[in-house]
Nucleic acid binder design. Structure first.
Ligand SMILES: [Mn+2]
Ligand SMILES: [Mn+2]
Ligand SMILES: [Zn+2]
Ligand SMILES: [Zn+2]
Lengths: 162, 162
DNA sequence: TTGATAATGAAAACCATTTTCAATAAGGAG
DNA sequence: CTCCTTATTGAAAATGGTTTTCATTATCAA
C-alpha cells in the first residue's frame, strides 16, 4: 500500500524525485510507462501504453500499467479522460517546459479528439474568475477543470446523411 | 432497429410527439422512464431509474432502461455524464420551460455533484464565441459542450488530512 | 548484505453495459 | 375492430475494461 497519493503538484523536481518524495519506489515498469507518455502521441488507452511498453520490456503486465496510471493520475502528473469510446484515455499533464494547456474537440461519431489551444487564454481567464466565485459560494476547493466541445469532425460531417 | 436517431432538437412538440415523429413507438416503459426523469432529482444512473420505474411498473427490464436512455441521449432529450464513479449518469436536458442550463462541480473524493448556474451567462457567451472560431478553424460542427470543475466539496475538504 | 515490505504478473473476479433471441405488443392498413 | 408487420421487450448470456487476489519478486534504507 502506497504511503500517500497526491503529494502537492508542480515543482522543479522531475518525476523520479516526486515519486520517491511520495514514498514510491521507482521500477523499470514505471519508468517505461512515464517514458512512453512523454514521447508518444496523446490520448493513449491503458492497453495502448501496455503494448508500447511491452515492446521494450515484455515482462511488464497490464495490471501494473493500470496501477501506475492511477498513481500518476492521483499525483496530477497525467490526466485521465473519458471521450466516450468505452475506455479511459491518458495524457501527460504538462510537457515539463511547454505550457501547453489545452482543451478538446470530441467527434461523437468517430471519437476522434482534437486538441486546441486557441482561445485558451480567454477561457482560462474566465475560468479563474468563475473558480474564485464558485469556491466561495459552494465552499469547494477547485483544483482542475474540464472543457470539451462535442460535435462532428470534418470527415464525419461530410459522410453524414446529406 | 429504429428508423433514425437524432431528429432535430427542440420545438414546441412534447416528447411523445417527438418520439413518434422519429418513428418510435410509445410504450409504458418508455413513458415511465420519461416521467421519472422529469420528476426525480438529477444525475440518476440507469440502475437508479430502473429501480424507480419498477416500483410502479414491475415488468420493465433494466435492458429497456438502457435502450431508452440511449435513444433519449441521441435525440438530445437527456444528457449523459461521466462523473467518475464508474457508471453513467443521466439528466433531462431541459425542464420544458425552465431555461436551466447549468454546469457542474464534481467532488473527486465523494463523487458528489453540484449544479451551478452562476456565471453561466458569461461562460456561455464565451463558449459561443469560441465555438464559432473553432468550427471554422477545424471544420468541426459543434453541437454541445461540457464544463466541469473538479475538486473537494466542503465536507471532504474538512475531512482531508489536515 | 540483509530484511521489511512495496511492487509485480497471472489468473480470477467484478460489474456496468451490450448482445442475443424468442415472445410480445404498438399502431397503421383495411 | 381485426390483422399483420415489425419495433420493442425481458431474461439470460456475453462482453470487455478495470480491479482484486495472492504468491513471488524486487526495491532500497539501514
Ligand atoms: Mn489532449
Ligand atoms: Mn446537472
Ligand atoms: Zn468524426
Ligand atoms: Zn466530497
Amino acid at each position: 500500500m502506497p504511503r500517500m497519493d497526491g503529494c502537492g503538484p508542480g515543482g522543479p523536481m522531475g518525476w523520479r524525485g516526486r515519486f520517491k518524495g511520495c514514498g514510491y519506489r521507482m521500477t523499470t515498469g514505471r519508468e517505461a510507462i512515464l517514458d512512453i507518455l512523454t514521447v508518444s502521441e496523446k490520448h493513449l488507452s491503458a492497453e495502448d501504453i501496455y503494448r508500447k511498453v511491452t515492446e521494450k520490456y515484455p515482462g511488464v503486465g497490464l495490471t501494473s500499467v493500470y496501477r501506475t496510471l492511477e498513481i500518476l493520475s492521483n499525483m496530477g502528473i497525467v490526466y485521465k479522460f473519458d471521450f466516450g469510446d468505452g475506455r479511459a484515455r491518458y495524457e501527460l499533464a504538462e510537457g515539463s517546459k511547454k505550457p501547453d494547456h489545452h482543451h478538446h474537440l470530441v467527434c461523437t461519431k468517430c471519437k476522434r479528439v482534437i486538441d486546441y489551444t486557441e482561445f485558451i487564454d480567454e477561457e482560462v481567464e474566465l475560468l479563474k474568475k468563475t473558480e474564485k466565485g464558485l469556491s466561495k459560494r459552494y465552499n469547494f476547493a477547485i483544483n482542475n477543470h474540464l472543457i470539451q466541445f462535442y460535435g462532428l469532425c470534418g470527415k464525419c460531417k461530410a459522410e453524414s446523411p446529406k
